[in-house]
Amino acid sequence: MNLTPDDIIVFSVGGVALNATIVSTWIVMALLTGGSMLITRNLRPEVPPDRWRTTLETIVLTIQGQIDEISALPDRRLLYFVGTLFLFIVMSNALMVVPGYRPPTASLSTTVALALLVLLAVPIFGIGSRGVRGYLRSYLEPNIIMLPFNIIGEASRGISLAVRLYGNVMSGAVIAAILLGIAPIFFPVVMDMLGLLTGVIQAYIFAILATVYISSATAASQVAKEQS
């Protein structure tokens, strides 16, 4: 039994092996993009919104609302990044109910990639908000002695993000696979339902933590801190 979908080679193109992680990611990407295109293809102000468009608007506005609650300086770029994180993880985890599907979030490579992206996003958003000097100065606060601890803190954030998501999703998928071998009728259904719940919660936690990390590096956080 393969614990990670990285080990499952689906097909090769020009000598490059494409594992299940990448293929599943493409499926998730195709579903998200295709669904969005279908729903938003006839989006004009004079056309009244249908139920799919209303659902999509509700999802986007809910994400925007969560970001606004955390970040004192709302930014559409933050919505693009965090919203995509949430939707990708939710869709990846929700597809676990499809037999034979291996979620890409069950791969440590995927979660590491997402964590690296968050780690990269923090300085990018921080520098975009406060400038290079202002952002780098935050590592010297409250004094220069804290510089190594701040760097370790930043790294540990990414590691914890990656391992938390990977552990939860992978363990759920593995336990479901084990129970499928032991009791193929009842337990897999229950575990899939629990997996769905866990997947949504993990997506929410991942996105929220990414928002918190990024917001803490922006000028808005600095302003809020000064005001307090």
Binding site: T25, M29, T33, T40, V60, R76, Y80, G83, L117
Partner: peptide
């Protein structure tokens, strides 16, 4: 893939 997905969702969703 994720960066592409961000661009696609920005273009077709957000």
């Amino acid at each position: 893939n994720f960066l592409v997905l961000v661009w696609l969702l920005k273009r077709f969703l957000y």
